[in-house]
Amino acid sequence: MRIATKALIASGGVAAALLGTAGMASAAPDTEAIVNTTCTYPQIIAAVNAQDPAVAQQITSDRQAVGVLQGFVAANPQQRRGLIAQAQMFPQLTQYTGLINNVAGTCNNF
């Protein structure tokens, strides 16, 4: 397992959840919205803050979570798929599925 994924799980998993569990509840995960997002890190954080300020605070107060989320945003779609596959190994992150889908669908508005 990559160091970044371990760090996120240790720090609450919020950023990993934001980048890795969209669609996990369905039989065939649909992660394309988050994989192909054109949103910037500030747009994603603004969308998270608008939908769940506590989660946004968790992310922004943890340097490792910020770094991983920024790395995800900077990655190309194929790299994002790999990061998502790693995060999907942690079923405890499924609680963020709705938030992820909402963020992926609204972050361009910020």
Rank of each mutant, 00 (worst) to 15 (best):
M89V: 11
G105S: 06
Q92I: 15
A75S: 14
Q92V: 12
N76C: 05
G67V: 10
I34W: 01
K6G: 10
I100T: 12
Y96L: 11
P91C: 00
T94E: 12
A16W: 02
Q64R: 09
I44W: 03
G23I: 04
I44C: 03
A25C: 08
A75T: 11
A104Y: 10
T106F: 11
D62R: 01
A87R: 07
A7S: 12
I100K: 09
P77Y: 00
G13A: 07
A15T: 10
A33P: 01
C107I: 05
S26R: 11
I34H: 01
L69A: 06
F72T: 10
T94C: 02
A50L: 09
A7Q: 10
I9A: 14
N109F: 08
T37R: 01
V55R: 10
P53M: 07
N108V: 02
C39D: 12
L19H: 08
Q58E: 05
T106K: 03
A4I: 14
V68G: 04
V66H: 00
V103P: 09
P91G: 10
I45A: 07
I34R: 07
N101K: 05
Q70G: 01
A56Q: 07
C39I: 05
Q57N: 03
Q43K: 02
S11T: 14
F90H: 15
G67C: 01
I3A: 13
A7I: 10
G71Y: 03
P29E: 12
S26T: 14
G82V: 05
L19K: 01
A50D: 14
A27L: 07
Q64F: 08
F110M: 12
G98I: 07
T97Y: 01
Q78L: 13
A46H: 00
G82W: 01
P91V: 09
Q70M: 12
A22D: 13
P53L: 13
N108H: 13
A104T: 08
Y41K: 11
P29G: 05
V14D: 00
A16Y: 03
T97N: 15
N109T: 15
A47E: 02
A15Y: 13
P91N: 05
S11R: 11
I45R: 00
V73H: 00
V55C: 02
A22G: 07
A4E: 15
G105K: 02
L18G: 03
I100V: 08
A4H: 08
G23L: 10
T94F: 09
Q57E: 13
Y96W: 08
Q95L: 05
Y96A: 13
